[in-house]
Computed example of a mutant assay.
Amino acid sequence: MIASDISNGVEQLGEMIARASVIVPFTGAGISTECGIPDFRSPGGLWSRNRPIPFDEFIASREARDESWRRRFAIDATFKAAAPGRGHRALAALYRAGKIPAIVTQNIDNLHQASGFADDHVVELHGNTTYARCIGCGLTYDLGWVRQRFEASGHAPDCATCHEPVKTATISFGQAMPEEAMRRATELAAQCDLFIAIGSSLVVWPAAGFPLMAKRSGAQLVIINNEPTEQDDIADLVIRHDIGDTLGPFVGN
């Protein structure tokens, strides 16, 4: 069912939240755009201006690694300035109320943690851009460490321990999805009674399979997104309105 207007959608969503025992939110880029974080796929998004650098290219080419880090530092101020929006704060309120055991996200901006979710309760399918990791031994690095060496040498640094490339702790095209995150997301989708997909185009697989998985496991499915998605026809409620306006009424719950 597509909500006739935002008031109707918020009312129906509130009733579904009240009835639910276990809610699992699934968030995409749309929840963070009001926070100043640009999305990747839409016209004018980051990928329309810069071709994504696949994982195998990052591994094989020093030039690709240098370009990848140049791009990351070019948007560093944007990520540092971003604060959780109304959507993040509403979900954090439901988390504190015990309705949400954990959140599944395609986002890499760390805003769910900043809103109050414990690190262990944020399942990051596509990683996190606020720190770096060696692709060899897995050692984590602060971005300041990477930036200092990048600016001093003009090149992306290698790991101080195993000398393999250091990369933002994100999942690139061609890189294997994180097994533990996928396992936890699968369990959450199967165990909830309300699954809310928020700000995701639901076109990136395998992540886009989780709403369908939840629905098949007996959960009600809500989709909140400005644009239609391919899964709207299986949803119990579709709200095609601004995410902040839709979830804002739940911030104080």
Rank of each mutant, 00 (worst) to 15 (best):
E15R: 15
A18P: 00
A18N: 10
S21Y: 04
S21W: 00
S21D: 14
S21C: 03
V22K: 15
V22W: 04
V22Q: 08
I23F: 03
I23P: 05
V24R: 07
V24P: 06
F26L: 09
F26H: 03
T27I: 11
T27G: 06
T27H: 05
G28S: 09
G30P: 11
G30N: 11
G30R: 12
G30D: 09
G30Y: 10
I31N: 08
I31K: 07
S32C: 10
T33M: 13
E34R: 07
E34G: 05
C35H: 02
I37N: 06
I37W: 04
I37G: 07
P38G: 09
P38T: 05
P38E: 07
P38Q: 06
D39W: 07
D39T: 10
D39A: 05
F40H: 01
F40K: 01
F40S: 01
F40P: 00
F40A: 04
R41A: 02
R41F: 01
S42R: 11
G44L: 02
G44R: 06
G45H: 09
L46R: 11
L46Y: 03
W47Q: 08
W47G: 06
W47C: 09
S48Q: 12
S48E: 14
R49P: 00
N50G: 01
N50Y: 15
R51A: 14
R51H: 05
P52W: 02
P52Y: 00
P52R: 01
I53Y: 04
I53W: 07
P54W: 00
P54M: 04
F55A: 03
F55Y: 15
E57C: 02
F58Q: 02
I59E: 10
I59P: 00
A60C: 00
A60R: 14
A60K: 13
S61I: 10
S61K: 09
R62Q: 15
R62P: 07
A64G: 08
A64R: 06
E67L: 15
E67R: 13
E67P: 02
S68K: 01
W69I: 01
W69T: 03
R71G: 04
R71P: 05
R72E: 10
F73T: 08
F73N: 08
F73Y: 13
F73I: 08
A74Q: 13
A77S: 15
A77L: 05
T78C: 02
T78R: 02
T78I: 15
F79N: 02
F79G: 05
F79V: 15
K80P: 00
A81K: 15
A81Q: 14
